Amino acid sequence: MSQSLTSEQPVATSLLKKKPLIISGPCSAETEEQLIATCTQLAATGKVDMLRAGIWKPRTKPGMFEGIGTKGLPWLQKAKQLTGLPTTVEVATPKHVEDALAFDVDVLWIGARTTVNPFSVQALADALRGVDIPVLIKNPVHPDLELWLGAVERLAKVGVKDLGLIHRGFASYGNTEFRNAPMWHLPIEMKRRLPELPIICDPSHICGNRTGLAAVAQKSIDLDFDGLMLESHIDPDNAWSDAKQQVTPQRLAELLDGLIWRHETTDQQEFLSKLAQMREQINQLDDEILHLLGRRMQVAESIGTYKKENNITILQTSRWNEILERGIQKGHKLGLTEDFIMKYFDAVHLESINRQNRVMNQK
């Protein structure tokens, strides 16, 4: 897929154009009373632009609460009438689309478990052909940008013009800090490839708890995300799904008040001039780093030639451990994190191995 969507260019209009766009509501619609109370309290805060509620819940195992189903849509419609706020729900099948449209839902979103399946996305795209409604697309469960981009492209090809993205983090084995690891470099790459699309952050599903919501929300703002989707419930501890990550409407308002909303740029000449100077320093340093990396790879190729002549394997585990240990210690003194050093040396090491492999297998 190209950097942008060429012939079918989706653009954010109307409901998705506001920045910041704040979407909130319960993880699941449970009862009419619960949904109406939550939505009216959210509206009363004056902080929310759109109401959400899970109607159909794709769960991991059968027997878990899978949503109240279509009978919850009239409740959401009533909440819209009472508050004057637009509504959004997750859809996973063409029947979901049909029912959501029948009850005047304003925005649809495609969940992570659906985005991961091109057949499901195409079925939704076919159901939305000719329908003028905004659609938000969550990242796939696992870190695969091509699937995320593919979902955008499938919807654009059937004429859905008003598209946006939701970053809700990615499943990763053994992860403990987050329910779904944010892997910020992936949504950043989506912003680079599709700068015309708004992207909002879903801290609730990234964190899986209440304590980290503010920090994740602030980081997304600092990265120039266009809004937030946060789950709210009048009685979070007794919610039927995802109780640990929901907050009361009052707490949501407090959380939002504590965030610092930043701007992408400014027209202040002094700032722009100083920033340009520092960016030029970065450019020069990057050039030096690339030059040094080029020289390093030349040495690696020479080592590969020497190993070939002496019939020695490419990988030397003890030497690799030595490089890592030395790099971590030196990096720590320079204020560099161990995680960064590991990722950097992994990339350099892989390129060195590839260079040596080519040298050793030349005929």
Rank of each mutant, 00 (worst) to 15 (best):
A12P: 15
R168W: 10
G169R: 12
A181H: 14
T114K: 12
R113L: 14
D267T: 13
L336R: 11
K71D: 04
V158D: 07
V131W: 05
L145G: 09
E301V: 00
S241G: 01
N209K: 13
V91S: 10
R52V: 03
L336T: 02
I341A: 06
E322A: 15
E264G: 09
D106P: 15
D267F: 12
M190I: 15
R154T: 03
I68A: 03
P10I: 07
T31S: 10
D202I: 14
K333Y: 02
C207K: 07
K78F: 00
P187E: 09
N357W: 11
F340T: 00
D104H: 08
K274I: 11
I323K: 09
Q77N: 09
D202R: 15
F119K: 15
E264V: 08
E351M: 14
L350T: 10
P74D: 05
C201V: 10
L272N: 14
N117H: 11
E33H: 05
L76F: 02
G174Q: 01
L136A: 15
N354V: 12
K18A: 10
H167S: 14
S14L: 02
Y306C: 02
S204Q: 04
L255C: 06
A102L: 04
S318G: 06
Q268W: 13
S232N: 08
A171V: 07
P182K: 13
P74F: 08
L136C: 07
V11R: 12
A44P: 05
A276G: 04
W184C: 01
R262I: 02
E98W: 01
H96Y: 08
P195N: 07
A151R: 05
C39N: 07
L128A: 14
M342H: 05
P74I: 11
V121P: 02
E30P: 09
